[in-house]
Amino acid sequence: MYDALLFDLDGTLIDTESIALATGLAAFLAHGHDVGEAFMHGLVGKDEPTSASLIRTALPGIDLDAVHLHWRAGFNAGVDAGLALKPGAAELLAATGLPLAIVTSTGRHGAHRKLGIAGIADAFAHVVTLDDVTAPKPAPDPYLLAASLLGLPPSRCLVFEDSETGAESAHRAGCIVVQVPDVVPSQGRWAHHLAPDLLTGARMAGLLKA
């Protein structure tokens, strides 16, 4: 049914969004901005330049460099303490024998660092990062590149995503999309299958037996 599996990283395979949320809230508050969780949810799945633009629009005059420095230090400390895999991730990565690739809005260094800490770096034939594309998610370019690297049409690729931004990217590329929302609920506008967890999503897509 499918020839490859493509995965978003943060919030889909590894539990980094909870770290980003907690450390982000603390960083904004430390610099005089009590933004709340709803504001932070609006940044989920966005690449850093897009997030910076959204923040500056919502908080004119913010010293974003100072906030990012504070946030990055807290986030890196949280990542260094260890990264848990999302429920079902280990089982799904080992279950099919299909080629696997990562498609993430994280930069190359950060993506490979997280994969190494999580202990899953060797599972993937390719890692497509923010540094590899001109137009990031929600543009289709990252998923089109991943399919091309694997020598496959996008329609033969099953994608696992958590965010609206990522699901839109994969859908626009022509992939089949399983969306497993993480910290932000979703109605699954861009998903072929909206699931509560990875293994349920894999069964809904026909990848695993029900």
Rank of each mutant, 00 (worst) to 15 (best):
Y2K: 03
A4T: 12
L6C: 09
D10N: 11
D10S: 04
G11R: 00
T12N: 10
L13V: 06
I14V: 15
T16I: 05
T16Y: 04
E17T: 01
A22V: 11
G24F: 09
L25D: 10
L29W: 04
A30M: 07
H31Y: 13
H33E: 12
G36A: 07
G36I: 11
E37C: 03
M40C: 13
G42D: 11
K46H: 15
D47L: 04
S51N: 01
S53H: 14
L54Q: 11
T57W: 00
L59Q: 02
V67K: 06
V67F: 10
V67S: 09
H68Y: 15
L69Q: 14
H70I: 03
V79K: 11
V79G: 08
D80S: 13
A81Y: 12
G82Q: 11
L83M: 07
A84M: 12
K86P: 05
G88R: 06
A89G: 08
A89P: 05
A90E: 14
E91C: 01
E91V: 07
L92H: 05
A94C: 10
A94F: 04
A95E: 02
G97P: 08
L98A: 12
I102G: 12
S105V: 15
S105F: 09
S105D: 12
T106K: 15
H109N: 14
H109Q: 13
H112D: 13
R113D: 13
L115C: 08
G116L: 10
A118T: 10
A118W: 00
A118D: 08
I120M: 11
A123G: 08
F124M: 13
V128F: 10
T129R: 12
L130F: 15
D132G: 12
D132N: 12
V133T: 10
V133M: 09
T134Q: 14
A135G: 02
A135L: 14
P136W: 07
K137N: 10
Y143S: 05
A146P: 09
A147F: 06
S148M: 09
L150C: 03
L152Y: 11
S155F: 00
C157W: 03
L158T: 09
L158G: 09
F160G: 06
S163M: 03
S163T: 13
E164M: 08
T165Y: 02
G166R: 00
A167K: 02
E168F: 04
S169Y: 02
H171A: 07
R172D: 02
I176Y: 05
P181I: 02
P181T: 01
D182V: 04
P185G: 09
R189P: 00
H193G: 05
H193W: 14
L198C: 04
T200P: 00
T200Y: 02
R203Q: 12
R203C: 06
R203K: 13
M204I: 00
L207W: 01
